[in-house]
Design a protein around this nucleic acid. Structure first.
Length: 428
RNA sequence: GGAGACGUGGCCGAGCCAGGUUGAAGGCGCUUCCCUGCUAAGGAAGUAACGUCGUAAGGCGUUCGUGGGUUCAAAUCCCACCGUCUCCGCCA
């Protein structure tokens, strides 16, 4: 969430930021109004508490001195104050909850240099690499057809057991999947600590990243135990140090995780339902970092570079987009997407989203750091990026590398991860 | 799932049974200063976070796992929950 102080000192700046996303600015006014009332009530409450504390001390002293009569008098007064205090406390609590509720729904402020615009059409194409002018006919077969033909993707049976928008990989297809995961992890092992977090988490953990309360409909909820299936490893990784104060020396912290990711895709029913374009459960290697504000810009570049290099080395046509304000997810201030061109599906597939979340998540999850030799603490910056969103990369490979004879060649960098396999042969 | 023990500051650890000058003894660690050729040892002082008011100094408030309750007053009493450990049960 945003810093409440900003609403006091410069509400117009907050409104401008909210407007750049195309969100409703009236929430800003509500926060300012509620916060002002909260402080009035809070101050009065604190004054009364102070008085009660003073009286209580006197009562204790009087009892020790054996002056019970005088004590009784003060107790009565204190009790009266207590009733007033209770009312004010309740009022303050209600206001506090309202402010927090409003703040939880307000998205992060886009970075100043994030492109203007409210829709994905406003995204700025930073670069396009490796795109061919013309793709061969044998590449223009969508991966769901290739997958079925080669027996490596079994969507029908996945649907039989789990419903639409689930997938099942088989044989060399499953092997390709695990190869991609290991490839994605190994490339970043030089600097990133691998984590295998829980993939089912508590409500607070989901709030920390900004996935709740606003996007409740998009997540799977296990009601019996009040747990949520994570939509991305970003969720548990953010919570890894929730509530902690880190040493500046420990920053930047680099983490990576491979997990399954679960998404209800409530708003996308009937869209992109073919093959692996959009599935409820998928594998992803996530890159993650906590760092100081000073380190953040370099870290943003680093994660983007690592994610893009992984795609580039697979030989896939791809482009990098600088997302327009309105297309940046709630927690992000600046986001670059990497999209792979899938010649069979004939479309760009988002395979990575690299976001700089400034202090937005740190405030929600209460993650701070201490600067060497300085008093007090600051909130860390958090950044995340998909190192490799497996199904869509899988799709890009299967379509791009399909040969004229119907076989699929394995990109060279992946061959060591597939026991030297060079191609998935066409059925005889 | 059942039984028991426990959860205190950066760490260790007292306080809880007998509620009150306890934001919390003592120790360790850390910072500054003194002493010292250097280091070690020794001496002195300091050493939480957050909120709020204030230009500041500082004031006030909150925090002893979390949330409620009792009381003039809660680390201390009561209730619920969470977590840790031990034993039993179940189990990949």
């Amino acid at each position: 969430m945003l810093d409440i102080k900003l609403f006091r000192t410069d509400p117009e700046a907050v409104k401008t930021a909210v407007a750049r996303r195309g969100d409703d600015t009236s929430a800003v006014d509500r926060v300012v109004e509620l916060d002002s009332r909260l402080r009035t009530v809070g101050t009065e409450r604190d004054n009364i508490r102070s008085e009660i504390n003073g009286l209580s001390k006197q009562v204790g002293q009087l009892h020790r001195d054996g002056k019970g009569d005088e004590a009784a008098e003060l107790q009565t007064r204190s009790k009266e104050l207590g009733e007033r205090e209770k009312l004010l406390s309740e009022e303050a609590e209600v206001l506090q909850d309202k402010v927090r509720h409003e703040l939880l729904y307000i998205a992060n402020m886009p970075a100043d240099d994030a492109p203007d615009g409210l829709t994905e059409d406003d995204n700025v194409v930073v670069r396009v690499e490796n795109l061919q002018d013309e793709y061969a006919d044998h590449q223009k077969v969508p991966h769901w057809e290739v997958g079925e033909e080669l027996g490596i993707l079994d969507v029908d049976r996945a649907v039989k057991m789990s419903g639409s928008m689930f997938a099942m990989y088989r044989g060399a297809g499953a092997h390709l999947l695990s190869a991609l995961i290991t490839y994605g992890l190994d490339r970043n092992r030089d600097a990133f600590e691998q984590v295998r977090p829980p993939t089912v988490v508590k409500t607070d953990t989901m709030i920390g990243t900004g996935h709740l309360p606003k996007f409740e409909d998009d997540a799977y909820h296990l009601e019996r135990d009040d747990l949520w299936a994570i939509p991305t490893a970003e969720v548990p990784l953010t919570s890894l140090v929730a509530g902690e104060v880190l040493d500046a020396a420990a920053l930047p912290m680099r983490l990576m995780a491979h997990t399954s990711c679960y998404r209800r895709e409530a708003g996308s029913a009937g869209r992109d339902t073919r093959g692996l374009l959009r599935v409820h459960e998928f594998d992803k290697v996530e890159l993650y970092s906590f760092c100081t504000p000073e380190q953040a810009p370099d870290m943003h570049r680093e994660i983007l570079e690592r994610a893009e290099n992984a795609i580039r080395d697979l030989g896939l046509a791809h482009r990098v987009l600088d997302l327009a304000c309105g297309d940046i997810s709630g927690a992000g201030a600046r986001t670059y997407d990497i999209e792979v061109f899938a010649p069979g599906a004939d479309r760009w597939l988002e395979v990575s989203s690299v976001s700089w979340c400034t202090t937005y998540q740190a405030r929600r999850a209460n993650i701070r750091f201490r600067r060497e030799g300085e008093k007090g603490t600051d909130f860390v910056h958090s950044l995340n990026g998909s190192g490799l969103a497996v199904p869509r990369v899988w799709a890009g490979i299967v379509e791009t590398y399909r040969q004229a004879d119907g076989s699929v060649r394995i990109p060279e960098v992946l061959q060591p991860y597939m026991g030297g396999l060079t191609e998935i042969p066409a059925p005889s």
